[in-house]
Design a protein around this nucleic acid. Sequence first.
DNA 1: GCAAAAGTCTACACCGTGTCGATTTTTATC
DNA 2: GATAAAAATCGACACGGTGTAGACTTTTGC
Lengths: 204, 204
Amino acid sequence: MPGRHSARSRRATERKGDLRERAILDTCEALLTHKGYDAMTVGDIAQGAGITRGALYFYFGSKQEVVTALVARTVEHLWERSRVTAQTDEPRQAIAAAMQRTVELWNEHGPVMRTAIDLSLTVPEIGELWKHTADLFIAAITAVLERAGIQAGAAPDQASAMARALCWMIERTFYHASQESREKLQEASATCEHIWLTSAGLIT
Amino acid sequence: MPGRHSARSRRATERKGDLRERAILDTCEALLTHKGYDAMTVGDIAQGAGITRGALYFYFGSKQEVVTALVARTVEHLWERSRVTAQTDEPRQAIAAAMQRTVELWNEHGPVMRTAIDLSLTVPEIGELWKHTADLFIAAITAVLERAGIQAGAAPDQASAMARALCWMIERTFYHASQESREKLQEASATCEHIWLTSAGLIT
DNA sequence: GCAAAAGTCTACACCGTGTCGATTTTTATC
DNA sequence: GATAAAAATCGACACGGTGTAGACTTTTGC
């Protein structure tokens, strides 16, 4: 990896490499969508980006690094959005907003999200990224539950543990539904929202 | 694959190959536990089973087939157990029993379960196996929800859709908790049970 | 215009997979 | 307990994907 991290910020003219790098990640996302992680080869990515394998290794040290960068790019999107929308006070509205944001992200980047989940065990870097994302979510859900009157605490029937389970429910449900269709995803979202509301005691 | 499927049934003396086959699957499970799927090589499995790579390919056509067989073996266990315990009528008892069974299975075979989930996208055979297992679960949960008064139907706030989401919640929560410790798994189970009960309207 | 940095390419060595044909061991039968 | 068929085992090979190395070309900054 050359000086990628943050060199971009104070640079007027964009380096050729920045172009390429984006091309690589875009190609990677396309391939992930149409072939899946295992079938996708480093040669495929390079070819799609208009360079040879050798050149690609100038930008990324391995296939895993490429995917990690792609996941990072995608997930950073999410972090920003969640920082913006976090101020809603009314529980019902907060829940609806959070679910809507999540549906959008999965509609736009479903394959990347699924790959991130699949690899978060085997690729530590991705595991970290995903864990952080999940933690943001869990914290948000916990806050809503507590505001709705669920007792704070980590016992099995208290806010924090429940939030964790609800987070995994949403993750997994979206994972499956996003493979089917946008409609299924929307329905799945509604179901998760309903269970969330029920668990929060906001629906009898 | 030689004539493996069900030849075992009407055979008094066990073939040498049956021994080996079990040794292969046992080794595979051990390796899955200690190295994980990616790091585990066909040579490793063969060595652990006391044969060479070449010999292993007499039993299984590929690494994936070995794992598929292992998953099948593990999951069949589950199917039997669930058939036995399915008769409980009282919702609260049925839920508790189901969760207990599931905890036991994950305690005994956590790594296999996790691998099955990881591979169910990429290995169609495993996908089928897992889907079938999930369907059994979802049907069971649906039945409990309906008996508890949730309206039958597939709309987002009706029994069948809710059961699906609850199933994924349990799967994912167990997936993570089983990596930590038996205690965590037990707690996670309690949390899932609580949310299930709440969703069923059995807890205010 | 010119050096240094950035980018690109081809060739190579390595490792894991799956196949093949030859060979040995086990099993059933007389 | 001899024997032929079936079952099991082995070593060697070809293939494909990965990652590295070194030479070469283009771009950038002064």
